[in-house]
């Protein structure tokens, strides 16, 4: 598909100083093959509108900064080529369901607060082992597959913008925080199901998800938060029916006995940083 010679960007602008309602502004720029929406925004900022604001960083769909509402869909600006959007103008608005800080910059803090409230980290009793590990926790490839898909989340907020419940309900945690809570609930090394359940069993939990499926369609990384949320519901319902109890977290595996190194495998290069210094924090 060839990109048109010129393309119109219709961008929603908001100035936090004036606090007047957001308005749409059109910009026409030359289009080149392979041009992404993010490339277009850069061209506009460099040539037409120096005050245009948005958030971006890596330019390759990894950092999760440039989530925007592009032609009515939440997408990453760096991952969206203008050629795939058809021949009309490219409409770019800030992600909905978040307050707008300025132009295309959404306020993602409520999402991160909800994320943090669901304890998205490994919770275990053996603190000594966690902070001074003597080995690694054992995990089979099958156990890894139970949550691996959900670890690819880049916290861009596209799923929250697509979710119908998030469109009205400020209490509901939303797809990203819930998906990440399940990522840890499903981790065989974790023992925090009971801790997370205190929040998940109430209003913030998965009960306001009705499987419209939009979060999974919107996710630019194929994380499928809707799947995580339904699996979480099953776990919680079975827990209520006393049909589920979280298994004991995986223990430390005994290191395999030393074996002769294969001659064709080279040695690892020497460290480029002083690891012993990096481990020392200034406070201790």
């Amino acid at each position: 598909m060839n990109a048109p010679a010129r393309v119109t960007f219709r961008i929603r602008r908001f100035d936090p100083v004036r606090q007047s309602p957001p308005s749409w502004e059109d910009f026409e720029i030359p289009a080149v093959a392979g041009m992404t929406v993010l490339d277009g925004l850069r061209t506009i900022k460099e040539t037409l509108a120096p005050t245009l604001a948005w958030r971006s960083s890596c330019r390759m769909g990894v950092c999760g900064s440039c989530g925007m509402f592009i032609n009515g869909h939440p997408r990453l600006a760096c991952n969206t080529q203008i050629a795939e959007l058809g021949s009309g103008p490219v409409t770019v608005a800030p992600l909905p369901n978040f307050d707008t800080i300025r132009d295309l910059v959404p306020d993602l803090r409520p999402m991160f607060d909800k994320h943090a409230a669901l304890s998205p980290y490994i919770i275990r009793d053996d603190h000594d082992e966690m902070y001074e590990p003597t080995g690694e926790y054992g995990q089979t490839p099958e156990e890894l597959e139970e949550f691996l898909q959900f670890t690819y989340c880049i916290k861009c907020g596209c799923c929250m913008a697509a979710c119908p419940t998030c469109a009205t309900d400020p209490v509901y945690s939303g797809p990203m925080p819930l998906g990440q809570a399940h990522r840890y609930n499903a981790d065989s090394r974790d023992g925090g199901f009971t801790t997370r359940k205190t929040a998940l069993a109430g209003d913030q939990g998965p009960w306001r998800c009705h499987y419209a499926g939009e979060c999974s369609r919107a996710c630019p990384k194929g994380v499928d938060p809707a799947r995580a949320i339904q699996l979480m519901k099953r776990q919680l319902v079975f827990d209520y029916l006393r049909l589920y109890s979280q298994p004991c977290p995986a223990g430390v595996v005994t290191p395999a006995p030393a074996s002769a190194r294969r001659p064709d495998v080279p040695e690892a290069p020497a460290p480029t940083v002083d690891v012993s210094r990096a481990r020392t924090s200034p406070s201790c």
């Binding site: 936090p16 309602p21 909905p96 959404p106 306020d107 469109a167």
Partner: peptide, 17 residues
């Protein structure tokens, strides 16, 4: 942040899609 964000929830429109 010292600025006030502009509310941008889709509201009931977001239910209907």
């Amino acid at each position: 942040l010292d600025t006030k964000g502009y509310p941008n929830r889709l509201g009931l429109r977001g239910w209907v899609g």
